[in-house]
Design a protein around this nucleic acid. Structure first.
Lengths: 138, 138
DNA sequence: ATAAAACCTATAACAAAGATGGGGTAATTA
DNA sequence: TAATTACCCCATCTTTGTTATAGGTTTTAT
């Protein structure tokens, strides 16, 4: 399951996507829309900004806005950013790899090999579905 | 990511699958093979037994054994048993459904709709891959 | 100058996972 | 009868991760 952080990130991105006509959107607006703590959301939006998905403007009249096109924001990117690995085991993660301590030889581990296949199938979906798909269905 | 519990369950099932020629396998043997605490593994094997995947025999010469054919033990079954939901959000889980509190209308939620698609793609893989696939690669 | 708003860091609070240990009971074999 | 081994319930403890909050700073429009 995704963490709430990641779910909130998707909500925020959806909201920003729906309000692309206006220059900026306040944290406040998003936090009220979804009942998310203002401070909690602040951290999330900041991470999305650092990842180059959002832009922001300080001071009066400031706020957040989408930098990327919705079709260029893959679900996988958001998940990895806030939740970490997509793979089901650390030993098959592309971005957060760690060996399994109990495993004598990865090359001889059937579980490892099957989980690589599972990972690749998951990535086929999560890298191709984007924020645009979410917006299309709102 | 899968919990260690689930990973250990897969290890145990793999071990049992590789030793189907012998009548029973001791908890001890599996826990030593993978360096898993005996007590921790005990609980896992018990759950697998209650789910009808394993059988057991008490007393001297006792132990655990596979009841099901490896090809009939889907990854999804083991994951759901020990880890819970496969879906990425509670509101799209088939077996552990819960509504999202922040969501006014599920029908109008684009995130919900996309995550249903993701879930179905994941299930395509996890319901078709089985213990047999793991054993084939050992 | 003032108010608005994002930015930044730290940390508290809480929950879940992981691991361990005790103390048994029940079934089975030899 | 004795030894073996799964079964069961519990309690605890540590570690980890998630969720949330606090308090201050910097930037900007008016």
């Amino acid at each position: 399951m995704l963490s709430k952080k990641t779910k909130y990130a998707f909500h925020a991105l959806t909201y920003l996507g729906k309000h692309r006509d206006q220059k900026t959107v306040l944290i406040q607006d998003i936090s009220e829309e979804y009942g998310i703590s203002h401070k909690f959301l602040e951290n999330i939006l900041l991470e999305l900004k650092k990842a180059g998905i959002l832009g922001s403007k300080k001071g009066k009249g400031g706020g957040y806005y989408l930098i990327k096109e919705p079709k260029d924001v893959a679900l996988s990117k958001v998940i990895r950013l806030l939740d970490g690995p997509i793979a089901l085991l650390p030993c098959v993660s592309l971005n957060y790899y760690e060996p399994c301590v109990e495993c004598k030889s990865e090359a001889a581990c059937g579980l490892n090999k099957v989980m690589i296949q599972v990972r690749d199938e998951m990535l086929k979906v999560l890298e191709n579905k984007t924020l645009a798909d979410i917006l299309d269905k709102e």
